Amino acid sequence: MIIVPEREIADLIGRKDAFDAVEKTFAAMASGAAYNFPVIREAIGHADALYGFKSGFDRSSLALGLKSGGYWPGNMDKGLTNHQSTVFLFDADTGQARAVVGGNLLTALRTAAASAVSIKHLARKDAKVLGMIGAGHQSAFQMRAAVEQRDFEKVIGWNLHPDMLVRLEETANELGLPYESLDLDRLGAEADVIISITSSFEPILKAAQVTPGTHIACMGTDTKGKQEVDTDLVGKARLFTDEVAQSATIGECQHAVAAGIVSEDNIIEIGAVINATHQGRTSDDDITLFDGTGVGLQDLAVASAAVELAVQKGVAVQVDF
């Protein structure tokens, strides 16, 4: 069995590796070659932690396995990241354990890759202004991945706690882009692409604040009850997602579906656009919304890529198991 420790991941896999793996995974899901198993996510009643499993199988790549992990809100006080994940891969031909891979950085990379895939396939080609809602740890990964998909000329941002906006400014400066903090009315009016990456349980962005032609990637809603945009905005947008069942039950579309504003039939897998079986954006005036709920197959894809690179570079730990 191969072990790829968390400490090795940063030197093994980059944004392009993650982007390619996630794009291929979404395409395989839409073609029926890959599927996710039901998600388990529970409060464990200890340390205020949420813990769960995401798993699946991709017949095209033979990626089989699961990601185990969750959220421990007290970890920052211990010098650890709050999100903790490990990916387990199995041999699809024998069922034997094939690899254990550190999943913390991989989770950040694959989440950013998913929104970047949506920008590539759904945002207007002339998009120039990137709007960021949320300034947590994941926001920097999101921004770095997004700017590789369009020729953005400016980044604008908003966060519930303004003192955290320095992360967005520093990341934009690192990328050589001017940055400005705005209120939500101006952000919605000026942004061509908006990435929302928060843990909100109340809608932040409203339909009245968004202009025609905007592409929105909602990347924070992955649990029942969470919500980043109002249901009116979901109702007026062309809807795309990683997996329809998750979008309708734990993703950004859950509230609009429950209210009868949209149905699951209104939500399209992004893989169908990648495979050119769905046209995606139909005009420059469409508001497109990608509901990135996060699927286990994304984790398996980037972990498999990390294992291959670790073996090639001689940093994989081999153990008898």
Score class of each variant (00 low, 15 high):
228 E>L: 00
14 G>C: 10
128 K>E: 13
184 L>M: 02
205 L>E: 05
139 S>W: 01
93 D>W: 11
124 R>M: 06
219 M>E: 02
206 K>M: 04
15 R>E: 13
243 E>V: 11
321 F>T: 13
311 V>C: 07
77 D>E: 11
133 I>P: 03
139 S>Y: 01
197 I>R: 01
22 V>A: 05
321 F>V: 11
277 T>Q: 07
186 R>Q: 15
221 T>Y: 03
205 L>I: 07
191 A>N: 04
131 G>W: 01
304 S>G: 14
189 A>K: 12
79 G>M: 06
145 A>N: 04
223 T>L: 13
27 A>R: 06
35 Y>R: 12
52 G>D: 05
208 A>T: 14
237 A>G: 02
62 L>I: 04
301 A>P: 10
152 F>Q: 01
198 T>S: 00
308 E>H: 05
97 A>Y: 11
200 S>D: 05
288 T>Y: 00
249 T>N: 06
235 G>W: 00
41 R>D: 15
131 G>K: 00
191 A>Q: 07
57 F>E: 15
89 L>T: 00
208 A>M: 04
287 I>Y: 06
160 L>T: 13
27 A>V: 02
80 L>C: 07
91 D>R: 14
30 A>Q: 04
131 G>L: 04
178 P>Y: 04
77 D>Y: 15
109 L>K: 13
296 G>V: 08
183 D>Y: 00
243 E>D: 15
159 N>S: 15
309 L>Q: 15
22 V>I: 10
61 S>W: 09
164 M>H: 13
8 E>T: 05
193 V>R: 04
244 V>G: 00
203 P>V: 00
170 E>F: 10
173 N>Y: 07
73 P>Y: 04
153 E>K: 14
4 V>D: 00
56 G>A: 06
145 A>L: 02
50 L>R: 15
41 R>E: 15
219 M>F: 04
249 T>P: 05
290 F>P: 02
62 L>Y: 13
263 S>P: 05
209 Q>T: 07
2 I>F: 12
52 G>K: 03
319 V>W: 03
275 N>R: 11
279 Q>V: 05
112 A>K: 09
60 S>W: 12
149 Q>K: 14
297 L>Q: 02
15 R>H: 13
120 K>A: 09
252 E>G: 08
69 G>H: 09
97 A>C: 15
182 L>G: 03
106 L>F: 03
271 G>P: 04
148 E>H: 09
204 I>K: 05
298 Q>V: 06
275 N>Q: 11
202 E>M: 09
321 F>R: 13
126 D>G: 06
79 G>H: 08
185 D>A: 13
194 I>V: 12
164 M>C: 09
13 I>G: 03
33 A>G: 08
129 V>K: 07
263 S>N: 00
95 G>T: 01
56 G>V: 02
141 F>G: 03
81 T>P: 15
38 P>R: 02
229 V>K: 03
114 A>K: 01
318 Q>P: 11
222 D>C: 06
46 H>A: 13
106 L>H: 10
69 G>A: 03
274 I>T: 06
296 G>S: 02
38 P>I: 01
91 D>F: 10
201 F>Y: 14
124 R>D: 03
226 K>G: 15
33 A>E: 10
74 G>I: 01
265 D>L: 08
254 Q>M: 01
117 V>S: 03
